[in-house]
Design a protein around this nucleic acid. Structure first.
Length: 993
DNA sequence: TATCCGACAAGGA
DNA sequence: TCCTTGTCGGATA
């Protein structure tokens, strides 16, 4: 068929819809050279007419034509309302698998609506004559074959971003003119809602745009006109000749438009051009960011959660359990239908038999009874099915979701959308079962929020309502009007964890709790929240939350409590990832004690402008769902957000501190002040005489922090006046004293700690323990507290360890080897915490719990040491462990040598004696190798992980495995197995207390 | 006085 | 400027 033939035929035709539609479509297929449904899909599985039609009643289907992943197509008779057809398609889109294109046609026109997820909807209109245009014809062909080509380029996110940027700038200029921030925010939201209302047709005749157009010319009348409009929207009525609906909802209660200048109106008119109906309300939170003061901006930014993360909580907490409930109902309904079908076929058979034979009265009665039974059963089943559907819809209608830190309402918006989608699916399922179509009842009433920030709370209200209205329109439902925004107290503007009167606030009962409460580290709480607030928190939550825990844990504890007292079933909350360790973990331990963590993401990057943070997403409560950790099924989720996916379980949180390990692992010293000086300066000072004749060497020593180990030594020295020198005595060491006076004193006198104020020339902490522990040793083991790789190194006793170093006060290679083995590495990774994504070594939970091989524990290695011929140093241990000690020491000695050679290749460096006799040689690069040497850091070595290094580690691991008595299967160990064995050893030993 | 943390912070490419 | 990688000192226990 040619375009001309097609046009000629369908211009002339006057057939009514039903009879003509299929013929029209088939002709179109011929025109486009596309197969018809019958030609390629006789069973109607992916391409058919009358999709969703019930064969029994012959009623309308969901769409006149349907092609999976391409389109739903609805016909209307000539010049009938095509919009109606579009509404119907919209409504049934979920049942059609949400095709990307929704096409309506009256046979003279074809209108293609795009419906791609997350894009601004687009519309292509083709009249009959357009089919002569090859480009238009191609467009139509794509609808059949490559619908992706019709995907609009503008995503809703881009649109919203554009809108947000311009609106933000406007808000900012208004604030700069001295208007109150809250007023600006309120005003902007009123305008925003007007844009939205206009573009979805709630405000008639482009009323708002016209108002702006006139306003641009007669600026002086604009505020009064806007007041008039907002007042009309608040009550409903007429604005000029245009009827205006009753909007209500608090948004237009206070009509206080701010004065605008010509430039503002120009900006607003540009904004009015955008398609506000497709605005993504979940991004509204960022909308006015630039216009707000820095304080509020931070709070809002902090509350912003990206949709993918929100759904990671909303799905398991809200939607999956409800879907499971509905599946149960569906199974029951299917069983009922089957039973009825069975009875019916029995009746049919009886009747068929009866028809072929002459019946006795008795037999006739019997047939009658079978028939009555079948129809009774059918009626009964229908009632039951109806009841099940009705009950479940009622359950959805009554489902309540609370977000006790709702911010601008993103969680509530997405939860509401999810719930509405689910309700819609259920309604369609019910229709398929022959029940009458029902109107969706899930709405803003289903969500509740608590939010302290007045501005965010208001934004949340608008967000939820826009979401509701968009959903209704996008699914072909008309809006409930009079008023349009119901006055529902969705958002409670108050503090969620402390009442104004100092009592614990009440959270309303709800089915589930979701949200992203604010994070604030334990040691920052007092300074940020204030002393009063802080002490109230302590009083209210005494015995439940420790003072050192993050602010976020109060929301977790309250949610746990709500579940415990039956005021909620489950909760899904976002937290900083450090909730997995330290004082914060306590709250998860309480949660595990009274309910279960059933879904968690333990350590996820956080997409949020400016916030460098990683988070844990945690769902807990009473549910029948199987535990899922990081997207994988597990047997159980522990308080540290780990779990093991097999029969063997190892809850590492039960590991205890071991007596035999105490006292060996000490943290370096906190300077509290700039006591570190460049090596060159220190060397100058070493050559300077002092009036009292003593060398500055008394108070100067090389210094190392984490960076000196993970990267190359920075050659810094430390001014250390020890714990006994008075200010006068210290002053005799003139040059260092001058330095401390200039760089440290002022800062120290500003401290809260009295001792630090008084003894400002001394280091921040006395370091008695570490000084004593290191005193008898020639060298010690150190590891950076925070580092990508778990590195251990030897440091000379004369090098002073910074607090960022964890020191193990042992000089033997055996201890060094055990610590550097894979066994301890795995233990450390699992038992320690992290800063962002970087692992952190925590002595109490990592070192003190680590079970060293028997006979080689820190308690055994603290005595005399002996240097072997190879150079390796071994401790004096009981005779039966001597060989193990030696093997480990030799292996790690080799490893260390290899590393040293890589770090400082002899041909690249020069060793120069230190200016002070008896000190370590300095390692200086030969000039031509300086750049290369810079890259020789331990972190880089372990990043590259050359085979020689891997092999040396392997030898070490074998020696350590032998000491554990695991030499035969060491190669096959997996992490879980190692952890389990180590935990068993830990639990079998004497705890510290 | 020991320990832990940072809705991070700062150095390097 | 992004990307990598671990400071420093407050505050609780």
């Amino acid at each position: 068929m040619t375009p001309d033939q097609f046009i000629a035929k369908w211009q002339a035709t006057t057939l009514k819809e039903r009879s003509a539609a299929q013929e029209h479509f088939i002709d179109l297929c011929r025109l486009l050279n596309e197969p018809t449904p019958a030609e390629i899909d006789p069973n109607g599985e992916f391409y058919c007419f009358e999709r969703g039609a019930k064969k029994t009643t012959g009623s309308d289907g969901w769409a006149d034509v349907w092609k999976r992943n391409c389109f739903g197509w609805e016909y209307k008779g000539k010049r009938k309302n095509l919009n109606e057809a579009f509404v119907q398609l919209h409504r049934y889109a979920p049942a059609l698998g949400n095709p990307p294109l929704l096409i309506v046609s009256d046979m003279e026109h074809i209108i293609i609506h795009t419906a791609f997820n997350g894009t601004v909807p687009d519309k292509h209109q083709l009249a009959l004559n357009d089919l002569r245009d090859p480009a238009q014809l191609r467009l139509l062909k794509w609808a059949f074959t490559e619908p992706e080509r019709l995907r609009p380029t503008l995503t809703t996110a881009e649109l919203t971003e554009k809108a947000a940027r311009q609106f933000g700038e406007l808000a900012q200029t208004l604030c700069e003119r001295g208007h109150d921030t809250t007023q600006v925010a309120h005003f902007c939201q009123q305008i925003l809602f007007c844009f939205f209302a206009e573009d979805i047709g709630l405000l008639p005749n482009q009323l708002f745009s016209k108002l702006l157009e006139i306003g641009q010319q007669r600026l002086e009348h604009l505020p009064a006109t806007l007041t008039n409009l907002f007042n009309t929207m608040a009550t409903g009525g007429f604005f000029g000749n245009d009827p205006v609906d009753w909007f209500n909802g608090g948004l237009f209660d206070a009509a206080t438009p701010l004065p605008l200048n010509r430039a503002d109106v120009v900006t607003l008119r540009e904004l009015a051009q955008l398609n506000w109906s497709a605005i993504e309300p979940s991004i509204l939170g960022t909308l006015f960011e630039r216009g707000l003061d820095p304080n509020q901006r931070e709070q809002l930014g902090a509350h912003y959660t990206d949709p993918a993360s929100i759904m990671r909580l909303v799905n398991p907490v809200v939607l999956e359990p409800l879907r499971a409930e509905w599946r149960t109902q569906q199974t029951a309904i299917a069983a009922l239908l089957e039973k009825v079908a069975g009875l019916k076929s029995k009746a049919d058979k009886a009747i068929a038999t009866a028809n072929t034979t002459a019946l006795t009265t008795e037999a006739a009665n019997k047939v009658g009874k079978v028939r009555t039974d079948a129809s009774n059963a059918e009626a009964k089943a229908k009632k039951q099915i109806e009841k099940r559907c009705r009950d479940f819809l009622m359950r959805l209608q009554n489902f309540r979701i609370i977000d006790p830190a709702c911010g601008s309402g993103n969680f509530l918006l997405l939860a509401l959308r999810g719930l509405k989608d689910l309700e819609h699916e259920v309604i369609l399922d019910a229709e398929r079962l022959g029940l009458p179509a029902s109107f969706p009842k899930v709405g803003p009433e289903n969500v509740l929020g608590i939010e302290l920030n007045a501005y965010a709370a208001e934004l949340a209200r608008v967000t939820v309502w826009i979401g509701e209205i968009q959903w209704m329109l996008n699914h072909g439902f008309s809006l409930a009007k009079n008023p349009i925004l119901k006055k529902i107290n969705i958002i409670d503007q108050r503090d969620a964890v402390v009442n104004a009167d100092g009592a614990e606030p009440h959270w309303p009962a709800a089915d589930v709790i979701v949200g992203n409460p604010p994070f604030l580290g334990g040691s920052k709480k007092r300074s940020v929240l204030g002393d009063d607030y802080f002490s109230t928190l302590e009083t209210i939550y005494a015995g439940r939350i420790s003072g050192g825990a993050d602010f976020v844990t109060y929301w977790f504890e309250k949610a746990r409590m709500q579940i415990e007292i039956g005021k909620a079933k489950a909760a899904g909350l976002v937290s900083t990832n450090s909730i997995r360790g330290g004082a914060n973990r306590k709250v998860l331990e309480r949660i595990c004690a009274t309910t279960t963590i059933f879904n968690a993401w333990s350590d996820e990057p956080w997409i949020n402008s400016g916030a460098a943070v990683r988070v844990s997403l945690i769902c807990f409560g009473n549910t029948k769902l199987k535990p899922v950790l990081n997207g994988e099924a597990v047997a159980e989720i522990y308080a540290d957000l780990t779990g093991i996916n097999n029969e063997t379980k190892a809850d590492l949180t039960t590991a205890k501190s071991l007596k035999e390990n105490s006292g060996a692992c000490i943290r370096g010293l906190a300077k509290v002040g700039q006591f570190d000086v460049p090596g060159d300066l220190a060397r100058q000072w070493l050559n300077l005489p002092n009036a009292h004749g003593k060398s500055n060497l008394d108070v100067l020593k090389p210094w190392a922090n984490g960076m000196d180990i993970a990267r190359r030594s920075s050659d810094n020295w430390l001014i250390d006046y020890g714990n006994s020198l008075s200010e006068n005595q210290a002053a005799f060491y003139e040059a260092p004293f001058e330095y401390v006076l200039e760089h440290v004193k002022a800062q120290r006198e500003a401290q809260r700690d009295e001792k630090r104020k008084t003894y400002w020339w001394r280091l921040g902490r006395s370091g008695i323990e570490i000084r004593t522990a290191l005193n008898p040793l020639a060298r010690y083991i150190a590891t950076p507290m925070v580092a990508k790789h778990r590195l251990f190194v030897w440091l000379d006793k004369r090098v002073f360890p910074d607090q960022q170093l964890i020191v193990i006060a042992r000089a033997d290679d055996t201890t060094f080897g055990i610590l550097h083995s894979h066994f301890h590495e795995i233990w450390a990774l699992r038992m320690g915490t992290s800063l962002g994504a970087t692992p952190r070594y925590t002595p109490t939970t990592t070192f003190e719990t680590f079970p060293f091989p028997i006979g080689l524990t820190p308690a055994d290695t603290g005595g005399a040491i002996e240097t072997l011929d190879s150079g390796a140093v071994i401790p004096t241990v009981a005779a039966e462990y001597q060989d193990n000690a030696k093997a480990i020491a030799e292996a790690v000695f080799q490893l260390n040598q290899l590393r040293e050679e890589w770090l400082n290749p002899p041909e690249w460096i020069e060793r120069q004696p230190e200016v002070v006799a008896g000190y370590l040689d300095r390692i200086l690069p030969k000039p031509e190798y300086a750049a290369k040497l810079k890259k020789r850091t331990l972190t880089n070595l372990y990043n590259e992980h050359p085979a020689s290094l891997a092999n040396a580690h392997r030898q070490l691991d074998l020696a350590v495995a032998a000491a554990y008595g695991w030499e035969n299967d060491a190669a096959e160990f997996n992490e879980a197995e190692i952890l389990q064995r180590l935990l068993a050893l830990n639990l079998a030993r004497n705890s510290r207390k």
